[in-house]
Design a protein around this nucleic acid. Structure first.
Length: 832
RNA sequence: GCGGCGGUGGCGGAACUGGUAUACGCGAUGGAUUCAAAAUCCAUUGCUCGCAAGGGCAUGUGGGUUCGAUUCCCACCCGCCGCACCA
């Protein structure tokens, strides 16, 4: 008997799959396409190729592959492609450090990823692969950009933007975390620059509404996106400064507190600020204040609970509800880019306004009473709860929520306000002053302005350059031959746009390119998209909860509206896998606690590595890597292998096992196999309970070992063993496809991936006898074995007859008898 | 502060709609095999009292509902993640 040698088994099958192109699937209209077969699009987030794959990749693709295999064997035509998100900062920063061109390092890494994916035996349709840094791909990224530009969804404007001084580029809001660059951790600065944006805000409401279109997304991801979009309902109300002759609209979520406004605050960046104070005593202090705010970092300014600062403007505005003149201030707690950059301050009912009023000794007025019975502490000002209106003119006595509607209606009638909705979401800043990205296909002409590069001249190829170092403008600006061009419209001398696109643009549509990756006329055909979309199961890390997943949703909606795809949501089901740690800590090279997948695969085999990451625990939660755990899984696979060898040698026929006339241990092991089929199938369908699927197969293998020696000498027994072993292979195949293929071939001569997922025989799930637990007052006192279907009365009588039960009934009176057929008996007693 | 997730043996984790808590794996202990070791196989393994039969206690804490609660309800403690001066 030979030892379990994963390497030779795995290489054998990997060669078969590669030679035959086993996982390639046809598009509609192509050879072999079967219109009656239901499709399933199983997709894992494409990797960013940098160095070698790590265990996080191993987990993500193991989980995705298990789903792909399971769906295939349940009759689906599964499309399961793979590609590379190969533009991006790390490759470029590496180039600056080492002088190695980003393309060279990137392609080397892609080769390494390709090799490992093959070694892991992931069932990928390689005929559809792509890499976002290739002109064949970014040609279409540019094409989509131009469609957006033509629709007014991509535009260029001057705006205060977030700038990372280390990476020397602007960043999207989504890429600034706690005031720092998401990539390098440097504190970002605000700069006023001309930049390119996608109009994500135009889709704010639909990004919220279309959550209803999704089948299954983790609740917390939806919550995070909702928070990010940040919808608030309220009203826009106009406060007029008569002396300055300016109307100041404000956004408020609390129009019911209008009568409590005692002052008015505008943001330091407010465009009217300078004019308001010019030539007055306030001019100098205001200028000083604005300068001091400008020196602060966004993070400092954003800190909650920091003392309120500000400067009075010596001006007033009129409160439209009561005609009161209230003083104006400038203060940094009001932000220019939310609402209108101005707020009415209601210190009685808003904590921030309250803090400001205290600092500047401004009047604080209560306009909503605390309802009766409110604890004194909660009723104190600032009071943010609901209650009847007071000191609010004709609205006195009305519940504030009702008054809210009435006040808004009244303002609308007077022309001084109206209902309004505000979103926190801002437009997606997509331009980057960096080299390693897709060039923005625009030409700047003195005569014609911004001119899109005609579609037949795409792609605008990235030129080769010598110096990748950023200098505050794109390194592309130095490539003069490339920059200087002619205007596509008038033919005059013109200059190319030198910014490149954020890499998140590349990854916002890649799932569509897979569907038709060789199309040279279009990014993808509508037909291919209609057939395969939406992605039925998307798998990746939570770190993309708002970045990639929000952008891709926006792209899908925009492409839908332009008529390129039929769906509005790209990913019907989302699964986010948890992170694998080592000794409780995040793995990192600097900590030296990384686990190298290639080493694990070399030592224990890909099947063991893959099965282990699915067995560690529920895959949506994180897990701590344990070398001994992989060994345990390897041991389990070895046991399956040895049982196979022994049974194959003895010559059992799985196909001979037909059913119910089986007896004894033979029946037991076959019944266990059916139990495992049932359990595995249910757990697979219930989501991602892979750990319990693996456990069920382990139990089956343990059962095979328990009965093996007793059955192997008998022909019928051998058949039963063979059936159980074939079943174990069949069920473990989504996790350990190589060993499963080998076992299946040895025992049946067939190919496992072409075999249907097994079905449990309901007859074999039943047992003749059941164990009934006997409890007295909820405590287990004995167990009895009864024939299935035994009458309640009989069970009860048997239960009471148990020696240990009788002992506990002595001196007590039975007050209640509960009999759950097939499960238990509980006798409730009290002292007699 | 707001939102989400979680707390079960020495460890990772099971337990479907309230019904045998601790499946499966790791680790540990003992045995078989071996000249020996590795590998393998078998057995034991929540804590605790008891020679045993058997008993008591255990799913973060405290209450509640129930014949019966890891599961449902209320209050709290701890951990992780996300958001946070958004008017």
């Amino acid at each position: 008997m030979t030892r379990y040698e994963p390497r030779s088994i795995e290489e054998k099958w990997q060669r078969v799959w590669a030679d035959e192109g086993t996982w390639e699937v046809p598009n509609p209209g192509e050879d072999g396409f079967d219109p009656d077969k239901p499709k399933a699009y199983v997709l894992e987030m494409l990797p960013y190729p940098s160095g070698e794959p790590h265990v996080g990749h191993l987990k993500c693709y193991s989980v995705g592959d298990a789903i792909a295999h399971f769906r295939r064997r349940n009759g689906f035509e599964v499309i399961h492609p793979m590609g590379y998100d190969s533009f991006g900062l790390p490759a470029e920063n590496n180039a600056i450090k080492t002088g190695v061109a980003p393309a060279v390092a990137t392609e080397k890494s892609i080769a390494s990823f390709n090799r490992q994916f093959a070694e892991w035996g992931i069932s990928i349709d390689w005929s559809r692969t792509l890499a976002t840094h290739t002109p064949e791909y970014y040609r279409w990224t540019q094409w989509i950009f131009l469609q957006m530009f033509n629709e007014g969804l991509a535009y260029r404007t001057q705006a205060p933007v977030q700038w990372c001084p280390k990476d020397a580029t602007v960043l999207a809001n989504e890429q600034v975390v706690d005031g720092r660059c998401e990539r390098c951790g440097t504190e970002v600065e605000t700069r006023n620059l001309r930049q390119w944006f996608f109009k994500t805000t135009a889709y704010a409401q639909r990004l919220l509404d279309d959550f209803d279109e999704l089948e299954s997304w983790p609740e917390h991801v939806i919550t995070m996106q909702k928070n990010w979009i940040g919808r608030s309902e309220g009203a826009e109300v106009t406060f007029r400064s008569e002396e300055a002759g300016i109307d100041f609209p404000v956004f408020t979520t609390r129009p019911d507190t209008l009568f409590g406004a005692t002052f008015f605050v505008i943001a330091p960046e407010h465009p009217e600020l300078e004019g308001l104070v010019a030539g007055t005593d306030a001019e100098e202090p205001v200028r000083e204040y604005v300068n001091s705010v400008a020196r602060e970092s966004l993070q400092e300014r954003g800190d909650e609970g920091r003392p309120k600062t500000g400067v009075p403007l010596g001006r007033t505005v009129t409160n439209p509800v009561n005609g009161e003149e209230i003083p104006m201030f400038v203060a940094d707690y009001v932000l220019m880019d939310y609402g209108t950059g101005a707020v009415m301050a209601v210190p009685g009912h808003d904590e921030r306004d309250f803090a400001f009023a205290k600092t500047f000794d401004l009047p604080i007025r209560r306009v909503i009473a605390a309802p009766e019975g409110t604890p004194e502490e909660e009723a104190e000002l600032p009071f943010t709860g609901d209650g009847p209106m007071v000191d609010s003119g004709r609205f006195d006595g009305i519940q504030n929520r009702e008054a809210y509607e009435q006040i808004v209606a009244w303002l609308a009638e007077e022309g001084r306000g109206d209902k309004s909705i505000n979103y926190r979401l801002r437009d997606w800043l997509l331009s980057r002053q960096r080299y390693w990205g897709a060039p923005i296909p625009i030409v700047h002409c003195d005569e014609c302005g911004m001119v899109p590069v005609p579609e037949d001249r795409l792609p605008v190829e990235l030129p080769e350059i010598e110096d990748y170092a950023p200098k505050g403008k794109s390194p592309l600006a130095a490539a003069e031959d490339w920059v200087n061009t002619t205007c596509p419209s008038c033919g005059a001398a013109a200059k190319r746009e030198t910014d490149t696109m954020d890499t998140f643009v590349d990854s916002s549509w890649y799932f569509l390119r897979y569907l038709d990756s060789k199309n040279s006329e279009m990014p993808f055909s509508r037909e291919a998209a209609d057939h395969w979309m939406a992605v039925d199961q998307y798998i990746g890390g939570v770190e993309h909860a708002i970045l990639h997943l929000l952008y891709a949703r926006f792209f899908a909606k925009a492409l839908h509206d332009m008529g390129h795809i039929g769906v509005v949501e790209p990913f019907a089901n989302l699964f986010t896998q948890g992170m694998i740690t080592r000794d409780g800590a995040k793995m990192s090279k600097s900590k030296g606690n990384t686990v190298s997948p290639s080493e694990i695969v070399a030592r224990h085999g890909a099947d063991a590595a893959r099965t282990y990451v699915c067995f560690m625990g529920p895959p949506d939660r994180g897990g701590d890597w344990n070398d001994e755990g992989v060994e345990g899984v390897h041991r389990f696979l070895s046991r399956l292998w040895r049982a196979t060898e022994e049974i194959a040698e003895a010559g059992g026929e799985a196909g001979n096992v037909t059913g119910t006339e089986l007896q004894g241990e033979g029946r037991a092991v076959v019944a266990k196999a059916h139990w495992a089929i049932d359990k595995a199938t249910r757990d697979f369908s219930r989501g991602f309970q892979f750990n319990t699927v693996v456990a069920a197969v382990m139990e089956l293998v343990n059962e095979i070992y328990r009965v093996k020696d007793g059955l192997i000498g008998d022909e019928n027994g051998r058949d039963c063993l063979s059936f159980a072993t074939v079943t174990a292979a069949s069920l473990i195949q989504p996790f350990a496809p190589h060993l499963a293929a080998e076992v299946y071939e040895k025992l049946t001569g067939e190919r496992i991936w072409e075999a249907a997922w097994p079905e449990a025989d309901p007859e074999m799930l039943k047992s003749d006898t059941v164990t009934i637990v006997v409890q007295v007052n909820g405590k287990v006192r004995d167990r009895i074995e009864v024939a299935d279907g035994t009458e309640k009365d009989e069970i009860l009588a048997m239960a009471k007859a148990c020696e240990n039960v009788a002992k506990h009934l002595e001196g007590f009176e039975i007050v209640k008898e509960i009999v759950v057929p097939g499960k238990l008996v509980n006798l409730a007693v009290k002292p007699a």
